[in-house]
Simulated assay, not measured.
Amino acid sequence: MRRSRLVVLVSSLLLAAGTALTGAATAQASSLAPTGGYVALGDSYSSGVGAGSYISSSGDCKRSTKAYPYLWAAAKSPSTFHFTACSGARTGDVLSGQLGPLNSATALVSLSVGGNDAGFADVMTTCVSQSDSACLSRLATARSYVDSTLPGKLDSVYSAIRSKAPGARVVVLGYPRFYKLGTTCAGMSETKRKAINNASDHLNTAIAKRAADHGFVFGDVRTTFTGHELCSGASWLHSINWLNLGESYHPKASGQAGGYLPVLNAND
């Protein structure tokens, strides 16, 4: 009788120890970087325009060592890292010039694209330099494009990524809200700020829907940027940069590290 109890006790202890070890191994495995390669695609929000420390060989693409893809790769050490995101890229540019490194060994793909297709630069130029009504009109045109045309363009990009990297986890990152509301902000009315934020939400919703329909993960950066919008007093975004207009309304290095990187880390 005592021997039976002892056997049961020992068996229980071994089972508990095995479970603990298995749990620890699982936790350790989940924290490891992908065993395959990482490819970072997309536009200026992924290349790191506004973050400085640009890689000289990237030329006008302005890929930064402070951009979230570079930071992620430095921390996780994937087997290969290809950084093809480029300033100004639209969906067609991603299709024609960025997908080369994708293959069956690619384990992770990150991407931000769609803002330039919807006329991001022209929208911001109009809203900064013209009246409330002109700003709202330009935003309405952008929203119409997002509803009617952008989904098909995103589908083309997402389908091509899946075809070339069938086993990859694909994280599609969105865009932040630009302005903190309910506070004084020089040069930009509350009407414009609210409309720009709403347009960003509209764009994110469209991107998230197309990503989900392709089985991709949508990385929402609006939460991490909350409290760090323009007019917040602690902005992670450039406002108008007269010395380098191309960096205007792009994340600073702090926005890449504090706004984008944590979202990729949470979804990789």
Rank of each mutant, 00 (worst) to 15 (best):
L9P: 11
L15N: 07
G23P: 03
Q28T: 12
A29M: 12
V39S: 01
G42E: 04
Y45T: 14
S46P: 02
S46T: 15
S47T: 07
S47Y: 00
S64H: 08
Y70F: 13
L71F: 05
A73I: 08
P78W: 03
G92R: 14
G97L: 10
S104Q: 12
S104N: 11
A105I: 06
L108F: 01
V109M: 09
L111Q: 12
N116S: 10
A121S: 14
D122E: 15
C135M: 07
C135W: 04
A140Q: 06
S144K: 10
Y145N: 13
D147V: 02
V157Y: 03
Y158R: 07
S159Y: 06
V170S: 02
K192N: 01
K194A: 07
K194M: 01
A195R: 02
N198S: 10
H202I: 06
I207V: 15
D213R: 15
H214S: 11
G215S: 11
V217E: 10
F218G: 10
F225Q: 07
W236D: 01
N241T: 15
W242M: 10
L243S: 15
L243P: 09
S248G: 11
P251R: 01
P251I: 00
S254G: 13
Q256I: 01
P262L: 08
A266P: 04
N267S: 15
